[in-house]
Structures are given as structure tokens and as C-alpha cells.
Design a protein around this nucleic acid. Structure first.
Lengths: 148, 148
DNA sequence: ACGCTCGGTTGCGATTCGCAACTTAGTCAC
DNA sequence: GTGACTAAGTTGCGAATCGCAACCGAGCGT
């Protein structure tokens, strides 16, 4: 009776990224949008909500607020290590969206490795046998069975 | 000026999984909870919200509602292929939560491959050179530069 | 002194959430 | 056949969030 996720890491993570805008804001920052106005204009998010999300990210150590000028002091938001570590989440979501939620009229996005130009893939694998794994082949270390 | 996510697959995906409960419900189903009451009791979600999320998942082809008895007809919810394909998202989120949101008192969850007992890792790699990739090494196929 | 930019804050109606109580279809015990 | 019980929802309603729009404040440029 277990597999993925009989744990609280997921709900802990969702406190930070579990709403409609958080991942879109983060996506913007990954894309190179670092300033309040850039994010607001690009995403079309209401400024009070953007303030809110950015503040929360800073509080949780996902972004940091760094001044990019004095007089008047103005800030931009940059990814911390914890923020950069969210890229697999964005990639996994994007891959799923491409495969299962693609607007027929839309062009699926292919991500490639900057150097090789070869497509990128996100997957879960076993560090021993190296096999790519499906959800039902995975269980928690401290338990016996695998779920359906 | 791009990398991950200058696309709409993410927002399309977030229409389905982008709220506070969706991924927790899905996590429950991955765990083996398939019935309405099981999910409600396990997650502590209000029943109207659970109804709502389950209906949405069915509409979007993530879960299917199958009768498990007649007289009275009662249903359970099972992952479709699209639903199973969300496991990398859950795993990526869980990994991040373990690394960066771990309650100091909590035990980090290790996932292992059922057969090997070896730990599981989720990562993004290049299909050509096989290198594991960070967000800033990734760009869209149709663009030039990589983001910071 | 006037307007402009950037990064917000404030107000407020509309939507969504979360709790609790109720409903529906059928079973089982008496 | 009446009453208690189960599972899967539905309904009502107050509380919290969202989303739009207008406003604010520090400094710059003219």
C-alpha cells in the first residue's frame, strides 16, 4: 500500500508552488524575466498577486531580491539554488502538457541541450540497473509493496 | 532570451493540476486509494472539493470512473495512461520537497526501485550525450540562446 | 514644476474554499 | 416493513483568495 508519495514532501512543496501562478512566475524567471514589471506584463498577472508570490518565494528561499540600482532603489528577483532545483518540476510538467494537453493547433515545444542540440528528456530511473521507471515500479525505501 | 518554458504546455497542464489539492489527490490514487471515501478520509479534503477535482480529472482524461459494484452502483477512480504519465511530476516535486522543504524533524523519503531496492532518481538529460542537465543548459529547439 | 518610470499598495466585487448538514440508493438486522 | 448503516456524493453559507482598477512614492529628465 504505497509507492510514490506517502509522505509530506509533496504537500510541503505545494505550500510554495501549489497554486495557479507560482509555477508560471517561476517559468518567467527561468526565461530571463527578473523584474517586477517584466513578469507582470509578460504573464498578465495582477500586481498584488505578483507581489504576493514573489514575497513568498523570497521567504522560502526560492528567489532572492537583489538591488539592481540605487536612487531609487529597485530590485530584481533571481533564482537561488533551491529555485534552480525546481527546473525538473517545470520540465516534467511541460513534458506532460506537451504530450497530453497539447492544443491541436499548438506546436509542441521541444527542449534541447544547448551544446548538443539534441532533445532533452526527463525521466525517473533506477541508480542501480539504470532502467527508466514507471510509477508502479517505485516504492518507498521503508516499505514492502508497490502500488497499482 | 529563453530556456525552459516559453510555451503554453505549462499553463495548459496547470489548468488540470495547478491547484492546492489536485496533486495531493493524484498522489493518493498513485498510493492505491481509489474510492471517494478513502481519498476524502486520507487527505482530509472537503467532499465537495474532492467531487470537483475528481470530475475535472475525469473530464481531462487523467482518471477514469469505473463501477466496482452494482446495486447500488458505486464507482472508483483509476489512473489512465495520461494519469500515470504524471508520475514524473510527482516525483520531481517530491524530490524538491525532500531537498529544500524538509521539516528538520521529518525523515526524508527515499524512493527505490521495487526490484533492485536501489534509490530512484529523476533527472533531465540529453538524449545525445547523456549528460544530466541543469535548467540553464537547456533551450528551446527553435531558439538560439540559453537563459540565466 | 510637470510628466514619466518602476515597483509596488489599496479597495472592492466576484470567485473559490472549507466546514457542516443533508440526500440518495441500496443493504442488513430485527 | 421499519430502522440503523454505508458510500458517494450535494447543498448552503460564511471566510479566504482572486482579479481588476485606481492610486501612491521615490527619483529622474526636461
Amino acid at each position: 500500500m504505497t509507492s510514490i508519495a506517502e509522505n509530506d514532501s509533496i504537500s510541503a512543496a505545494l505550500e510554495v508552488i501549489g497554486d495557479r501562478w507560482s509555477l508560471l512566475v517561476l517559468r518567467g524567471v527561468f526565461r530571463g524575466l527578473h523584474r517586477f514589471g517584466e513578469l507582470r506584463d509578460d504573464l498578465g498577472i495582477a500586481s498584488n498577486l505578483l507581489t504576493d508570490r514573489l514575497t513568498r518565494f523570497v521567504e522560502h528561499g526560492v528567489l532572492e531580491k537583489v538591488p539592481y540600482q540605487q536612487r531609487p532603489v529597485r530590485f530584481e528577483y533571481r533564482l537561488t539554488e533551491a529555485g534552480r532545483a525546481l527546473s525538473p518540476v517545470l520540465i516534467a510538467i511541460m513534458q506532460w502538457g506537451d504530450s497530453y494537453r497539447q492544443d491541436p493547433s499548438g506546436v509542441p515545444t521541444t527542449l534541447v541541450h544547448g551544446e548538443c542540440n539534441a532533445p532533452v528528456r526527463n525521466l525517473t530511473h533506477c541508480t542501480e540497473c539504470n532502467e527508466p521507471l514507471e510509477a508502479n515500479q517505485i516504492r518507498r525505501a521503508d516499505q514492502r509493496t508497490s502500488a497499482t
